[in-house]
Amino acid sequence: MMKLDGIAAFVATVEAGSISEAARRLGWSKSVVSERLAELERTLGTRLVQRTTRKLSLTQDGGNLLPRARRILAEVDEAAAEIVERRGSLAGPLRISAPVSFGVLHLGRVIYAFLAEHPELELSLELDDRFVDPAADGFDAVIRHGPVEDSRLVAKRLAVTRRTLVASPSYLERAGTPKSIEDLQRHSGILYSNRDTDWRFASADGWRVVKPRTCMRVNNGIIMRDAALAGHGITLLPTFLTYSEIASGSLRHIDIDMEAEGAELYVCYPLARTPSAKVLALVDSLRTAFGNPPYWDSAC
């Protein structure tokens, strides 16, 4: 029969990339991690990890076991947390992923207050701009900005966000202020590299897509904002990235008499998994903190 500490040693070794790092994360000695991993392999009658002097790599059997092993550990953690929750408190691990720019600018203060309210939680927050799969990547929930088209996920809306064209006063004085779609296409654009048709505007005839002259492509909103502040061109960003700069005058809204395509912030978790009280409590805290309309739009 497989033992939990063997499964824990296997998962930690794979995720850490070495037995010594797995031992540090688990708080065990290297010899104990090696023994537990070897014992698991003996129990299953197969090699799970290939060990060399330079690196560790998964065997085919190890690769097949890994997602199930992660789920087993998550279920055990969740079961233990539920017992604590029935006593009226939230406890145990909570692993969340969120976009980098939004996380840096807006998640910290909410999460600090959430942890102060629930001191028995063990929160892991990973900031990543790629579309993270919560089930495959071992997250309890992920925060996404934009459409959620995966039918395997439940998406709970946190806030509706607006996107607006912005540029620095120095750029607009040098290049002129566009008044129309046609004007906009002649300007330098700072574009988000994770979207092919990022500049979309609602018109009476449907969506209009604008492809400005590209001066920069990057997959991070804060760098896009800072490039605009430096006077390199016009960019289209959610107001949660620009509301402070608009208020101070260091960036200006550009009005072309069309509304840019907006987006929504969601918390997503796997459809096949019942959401824990921890995830639901976090959703409530985020909604309350952001407000309706969100505070970054109220400030604009």
Rank of each mutant, 00 (worst) to 15 (best):
R208K: 15
A16T: 01
H145V: 05
T59R: 11
V283P: 02
R24G: 06
I222D: 01
C215K: 12
G249K: 15
A135K: 14
A113E: 14
P238Q: 05
I7N: 00
F139G: 04
G146L: 07
E264I: 01
S298M: 10
M2W: 05
G291T: 04
L191Y: 02
I96Q: 04
L58A: 13
R213G: 06
V100Q: 11
R54T: 10
M224P: 00
A136I: 00
T164L: 14
M216L: 15
P67A: 09
R109N: 13
G233H: 06
V110R: 08
F201P: 01
R86W: 10
F131C: 01
R42P: 03
D226I: 08
T177Y: 05
L58S: 12
T52R: 05
Y269P: 01
V210P: 01
E21Q: 14
V76N: 04
L251D: 04
L229D: 02
A155N: 07
C300I: 06
K30E: 07
S29F: 10
R273T: 07
F102K: 04
L105Q: 13
S203R: 13
A281Q: 05
M1Q: 10
E261P: 00
F201W: 03
L121R: 11
E264C: 12
T239S: 13
R24I: 06
I181D: 01
L237I: 00
V11I: 02
D198C: 01
S101L: 10
A16V: 05
G146C: 11
G63I: 04
A98W: 05
V49W: 05
L121F: 13
I143G: 04
F290H: 05
T164E: 12
S285K: 14
V33W: 08
G92L: 13
D183N: 08
T177A: 14
L4H: 04
G291E: 03
L265K: 00
L184Q: 02
R225F: 03
R213W: 04
R174A: 14
G108D: 09
N220P: 01
D128K: 11
L26M: 11
P169C: 09
V14I: 00
Q185L: 11
G92T: 02
W296M: 11
L125C: 14
Y266V: 03
I256T: 04
L90D: 04
E120L: 15
A91F: 12
T161L: 09
P169M: 09
Y295T: 06
D198V: 09
H232W: 15
V84A: 15
G262T: 03
G17A: 11
A113Q: 15
L94W: 06
D5L: 11
G231I: 02
A81W: 05
I234K: 12
V279R: 08
S276C: 11
A204L: 12
V33P: 04
D198N: 07
Y171T: 03
G138E: 06
G17F: 10
A74Q: 14
L123K: 14
I246L: 15
P178Q: 08
L282G: 07
G233R: 09
R157A: 13
A116T: 05
V148Q: 01
A159Q: 03
R71I: 01
